[in-house]
Design a protein around this nucleic acid. Structure first.
Lengths: 375, 375
DNA sequence: GGCACTTTTTGCGATTTCGAAATATCTAGC
DNA sequence: GCTAGATATTTCGAAATCGCAAAAAGTGCC
């Protein structure tokens, strides 16, 4: 129905995004990718070059014909700030205009912080990034746990920070830095991170598995993040488990702490190691019954998701990635054995190559996508 | 990133679609809806009128200002054909250019038909429609059970018709009628029917529940049908059930025949009434244990879907709609009791107002969306 | 009736985009 | 070295679109 078309300003913005993703490298390939005429696109590229956003970076001789004049974004044209936080820490990243990560910083929050403390810390770390960069960012993205309304910049609710209810996080930060500030849910930001910095570069359909203190997923479908009618899609941690008549939630079985307890035999109240990722990494791989049960639960959930969503790849994030490819392969195998229908199902589960930075990188991705070149 | 914009020909097509959906009724409201300038849109509307697709149908005086000149599509400007079939029957509808259903026809197929018989029947019924209309259709949509590739017009697989594998249904029909032919999966077509002819007129996010001979769903998200990476999304009938360690599939529990057997105590091999819808309609409503179990199973599945997809409405289709609002209300109530998380969840389940025609109407919707005015 | 006000529609110059042809720049083959 | 062929980029007139101002067509108040 609607053409994949864009108008002047958006055309330039789309060109910048394509160059940053390195999906297109010359005027002609950009024109093809953006479905614009070569002449129009040439004009916009010339403008981007004139304003210092891009340069020609040499020639690329194909097998035949006139060589393409390669286009590159100028890293020094500006930078984007990505922020991610939860109840324990705040992390920021600085990404230059070409999409290279230039700095990351983590700050541990005091125990049981309140909303004001978190907000203050976010602003302080952004200020530090700006000082180091010698310039304000072009845009700021914030990955926020809990419910978020990206439109208004309000953080609706997050139970692990005291007083975190209807916090005007977006407007507050915007007032301080006077640049576009965009909020996005944590996990959905990670979906974007996978697209811009991870293994989702050439994929339009994938799912992020996010077992951390809880268990949630985010869905990339047709190149767009699936948000749901009330910005609440992906909350499957609240599924009852086992599904038919269980008294638990999926959270209680598949979250990172839960999996650690199940694999090590710890009780509910026993203290957890401070760094779960390291703890999982140091585990000796054994085909214990507990291991098989955890793998089986994951396989069931992922198998169902695959039948429902028909996605291309599942990216595993969070501490459990330390269990490595072995864990993912075990899940795949188990899923194929659950039901005849699942045996033939295409299924790919991959531990994300992005580490703890994923959320902050995703937030930076949000900023990159929100920015458009000035008129 | 990309603007919601359209170009010349698509702008006219989008204008026609908006007029048909009665979401916009004047030049100015169309311009706002399509995000185009009033001047540009005026030109296109003048063209549509000049070519006989639309007319001005009076004035609408608002509270203030110059009255709008109402625009209407001319029903006699052409018609669209919608076809739906399964192993038992073929149904066609004729929808005029303004979106009014003008004729529907059903043909019962012989028992265990083969692919050639089905195709021949489809073509014959389309020919009859065209004869009655006195003109060939502007476009044809076909709602197809099983796997479908809308791009190539190939029907990949459907087990209940002999030899139904990689059938070039689209190209075959196109060769006969020389108009655009679009295939779409049965249930996904119904999602479009709900948008064009049912209760989904003002909704962008809803889910179709399709318990017929099997159990599947289709998902409308952000105004777009969710297809999945391999056109296979929504196949949750193949979920194992109960989820944790069940030896059944959801099909076996929630399909229309299964529900009928569960509610009436019939055995697997007992014959079913010929018209399940009528049978459900004639049922005396009793709070039996079986009823509660069926409702409970539906509640669990729908609750999980709601947490995952965060949709606005679930539309119930198929024979079970005959159980009425009572069934849907019972599911809603049951879902709220399953888990604490589900108690506060927004949840709306509605029996579709579209009857057995839904699939054919959806196919016609596919045709309407595929058509664009000639240059 | 006349005037202020509101909203829709139309008119027009400026801007943007397109399409196609012309030009540029390479490889391959003779 | 020259020519044919291929692909990329630029040029340029035509077409589409926009933004804004003007005109049209009502209501309500005096």
């Amino acid at each position: 129905m609607r053409k994949n078309s864009v108008d002047q300003r958006d055309l330039r913005a789309a060109a910048v995004l394509h160059l940053r993703s390195r999906l297109a490298t010359s005027r002609s390939s950009l024109a093809r990718a953006l479905d614009a005429s070569p002449s129009t696109l040439g004009l916009h590229v010339d403008q981007l070059i004139a304003r210092g956003y891009a340069t020609e970076s040499g020639l690329d001789q194909g097998a035949l014909g006139r060589p393409r004049r390669l286009l590159t974004l100028r890293p020094e044209a500006g930078w984007f700030a990505g922020v991610e936080f939860n109840a324990e820490r705040v992390q920021v990243v600085r990404v230059d205009f070409a999409g290279t990560v230039r700095a990351t910083e983590v700050w541990q929050l005091p125990a049981e912080p309140d909303a004001a403390t978190v907000m203050k810390q976010i602003v302080q770390m952004l200020e530090k990034l700006a000082r180091e960069a010698g310039a304000p960012p072009l845009a700021i993205g914030i990955g926020t746990p809990g419910l978020v309304d990206p439109r208004s910049g309000m953080a609706i609710h997050y139970s692990f920070v005291r007083g975190w209810r209807d916090v005007p996080l977006g407007p507050t930060v915007q007032a301080r830095f006077a640049v576009p500030v965009t909020l996005e849910n944590n996990l959905r930001a990670i979906a974007l991170a996978e697209r811009w910095f991870g293994g989702g570069r050439d994929l339009n359909d994938y799912v992020i598995l996010g077992p951390r203190s809880g268990f949630g997923i985010s869905i990339m479908h047709g190149g767009q993040v699936l948000r749901g009618a009330h910005h609440a899609a992906g909350e499957i941690g609240r599924w009852p488990w086992p599904l038919a008549g269980g008294s638990h939630e999926l959270h209680d079985k598949l979250s990172a702490p839960a999996v650690y307890r199940r694999l090590t035999g710890l009780f509910e109240d026993d203290p957890l190691p401070p760094d779960l990722g390291a703890a999982f990494g140091g585990m000796v791989a054994e085909d214990t019954l507990e291991w098989q049960e955890v793998v089986g639960d994951y396989a069931r959930v992922i198998g169902c998701l695959q039948l429902l969503l028909d996605t291309e790849v599942f990216f595993l994030h969070g501490p459990l990635t330390a269990l490595g490819q072995r864990f993912c392969t075990a899940i795949t195998t188990a899923a194929r054995g659950i039901a005849p229908a699942m045996a033939e199902m295409p299924l790919q589960i991959i531990p994300s190559a992005l580490g703890d930075d994923a959320g902050a990188l995703g937030a930076a991705s949000v900023a990159m996508e929100a920015w458009t070149p000035p008129a």
